[in-house]
Write a protein that binds this DNA or RNA. Sequence first.
RNA 1: GCGCCCGUGGCGCAGUGGAUAGCGCGUUUGGUUGCGGACCAAAAGGUCGGAGGUUCGAGUCCUCCCGGGCGUACCA
Length: 525
Amino acid sequence: MPEPFIERSQKPEHGDYASGFPLKLARVAGAKPMSIAEDLIGLMPPAPEIKSIVAAPPGFINFTLKSDWLTNQVDSILSARDSYANIDIGRGSRVQVEFVSLNPTGPLHVGNVRGAILGSTLANVLSAAGYDAEREYYFNDAGNQINLFYRSLFIRYLQALDKEAEMPEAGYMGNYLVDLAGEFASTEGDRFLKMDEAGAVTELGKLGVERVISKIKEELQLLGIEFDSWFTEQSLYGNGQYERAMSLLRKEGYIAEKEGATWFVSTALGEDKDNVLVRSDGSPTYFATDIAYHYNKFLERKFDRVIDIWGADHQGHVPRLKAAVGALGVNPERLELIIHQMVTLRRGGETVRVSKRTGDIITLRELVDEVGSDACRFFFLARSANSQMDFDMELAKKESADNPVYYVQYAHARIASILRLAEERGIDHSKGDVSLLTGEPELFLVRKLLLLPELVDTIARTLEPHHLPHYAQELATVFHSFYKQCRVISEDEDLTKARLKLVEAAKIVLAKTLHLMEMTAPGKM
RNA sequence: GCGCCCGUGGCGCAGUGGAUAGCGCGUUUGGUUGCGGACCAAAAGGUCGGAGGUUCGAGUCCUCCCGGGCGUACCA
């Protein structure tokens, strides 16, 4: 027996909502879809919102809403204002969105931008969907890479003070480290030369990490991104969480010692192979600390839902982390991973390498300076996380004038301009009668406005924010079309007031959409 | 080799198993002596990478093949 379902009609001719349920039911019922549709319609009680329910070949049921119910929604939008499209599917449950989480060994580059934009937008949408959403940045301030960073910085520091020193093998060669070391040479002087080298490397290194993190914060701000929490790997060791996570795994029988190392027996959970947790030299792997980190997320901080956003280069890590979370006694479905495909950056068709270690990078700052935050966000957001993207900076700049970004924002500016004019003329539309909005372009616009709450619902469930820019563009199109067909401020005072209400509602919805994407909604352009 | 992702008009992308596959850019043709022309209207342009299969119905699900990306570490 199939489950009944109803969905948005794909075309206006099919009403507002439609169901292909009779087609599904025909299989098991052994009856003709059309007659099932008609029978079902006969069983449905009349509803005040519904104008008509009709059967349509080959067996759909189409529902059309009443115009006065639709236009009344304009008043609802006006009274909801900024909270319009806020829904409550989350019921206040706690969800954590962790993203970017780049190690503090260098500045953010374009490869990190995609995750940053995805994560911040998702967190916004989840908040609107009634979740208590927390944005977290996790950074690795322990382990191999950070030691290498410490050493690299120290060598650059020595060089900045005209000492002979050679960079370590595979060290961080980027110019930013040279600059950073130069900064420290002038602000800190040569005081690190006077202590023992190991201490100096660590102390200078810590200063370096601090500095890099504050730069990362600044850069994220350029895209409007702020985090609620900055979580350090060190803290996992500081208060024993690492040990607790490991001993829990051990207690559950998922740990084995072999070949001089400590292993997570993921084969017991259907994985292809086991994974090393503690190397034979006694140091924990990234995997081990990631398990401890997720132990912290679920068992210490008790998030109901955890979303990690990773690049495709970490995709192979997903099954074993899920297995590990399960081994900790947490339902792995509570951990959701968004894997976004890689971004290749181009400049006029030429691929730009984005390796931190070789140093040839285009930073987030350069990207935002050249292309602009709004355009960046729209561009990156419009593509589904599953598809890889080429980002050509030349093209992005060149096309920006004909960009959907400006098309959408222009609609908002236009609306603002109309409302400004109405205000200048002293028109008070607060008592406007929305039932006068009977024209097709008006109702079409109302229908479009009503989609946003459903979109928030969809995105909160599917974690696919790329629908947002597409909706924004459709909404702008419908508004522009309405604008062309319906003069807002006219001699007809009552109609003017009614239409001003509609226009203001459109402004609220468009601004909300832009703000969910963390884009600006300009009053003028 | 194996695993994950992608392949949709010239280009860039949407498309919760459903009705005639959509949108932007580009191309062509029109449009305002009124609220912002950064706009609107219309047209041309598709055997949805290929072949099988499941289904009343497949761009969507399954199998195989082709092409591209990313993995496949006692790196992160």
